[in-house]
Design a protein around this nucleic acid. Sequence first.
DNA 1: TCTTGATGATTCAATGTCGAACCATCCACA
DNA 2: TGTGGATGGTTCGACATTGAATCATCAAGA
Lengths: 151, 151
Amino acid sequence: MGTHYRGTPEEIRVLDTFIKLVRAANSMGERSLRHLSEFGLNESQFAVLEAVAALGPLCQKDIAKKILKSKANITVIVDALEARKLLKRERSQEDRRYMDVHLTVEGRQLIDQVFPLHLRNMVEEMSILTPEEQQELGRLCRILGRKERPS
Amino acid sequence: MGTHYRGTPEEIRVLDTFIKLVRAANSMGERSLRHLSEFGLNESQFAVLEAVAALGPLCQKDIAKKILKSKANITVIVDALEARKLLKRERSQEDRRYMDVHLTVEGRQLIDQVFPLHLRNMVEEMSILTPEEQQELGRLCRILGRKERPS
DNA sequence: TCTTGATGATTCAATGTCGAACCATCCACA
DNA sequence: TGTGGATGGTTCGACATTGAATCATCAAGA
């Protein structure tokens, strides 16, 4: 019935912006995910492979920070990828608490197949915006996403 | 090591924009979620309550569409809220397949407590952007979030 | 050297979410 | 009238994710 208090124009604008932000992120994420399943990867597994491929061997804590998941979850994800021999754990020499996670040859081959495809899809999805709009969107999102806020 | 192929400037810009989008949505969502737990609500439960409060009685399919969850999940969420007597299901008279989900008095009282608080937090989070920037962010996200794309 | 606190990784139990199969109901049409 | 396809809701099994507890290891200081 819409009789519920909906707020001032400012409040309406804020809620409206927020819901669009969530929908856009959902929508893009979902579209990019579709193509991954053909390779037997879910979004998180892909993100881990991609991180290690791009940045070189990482410890699990750094992977967690990079892909925004808990370290408990990283253990599970790396378990699965290691079982498929796409990654390998190696105990760090300098500090034995750390596990260095690195790509295997098979992992490299897979990510070299998947990543360009993923990239192409992302570019296509995003191309509905002009380069300048993309840049501006990135700028605004970066501000919102900051953990620390300038008081 | 960063020796992995990273793409053309366009590709880099797209990926960069996407990751910022996801981080912004995550970040805002998480911050807004924090205050809900004091009321024993999770994000989805709040979203359902809010939808019904704002729009009046809804069937579960419409709720699903509104809050972007599967209908199986709506069943679970409404189960929980109904068990707490915040919502009530009622079989639709016109079409007995539909369940009309409406607020109870207790549900109304709760959402009237929680919603203004939520609103205040959202406004504060978003106020790091100017009103014009918020509007522009909304515009860009709306374009990206569209299900149908102009071919 | 021994102890203590910090930290990375793992395990475990709980929760949220989904797709598929299913049931109930409706509607169009023979 | 009744039959078959479509549709809303529920159930069920699977999976992803998390926080808390725990283990192993390290570093600093008594």
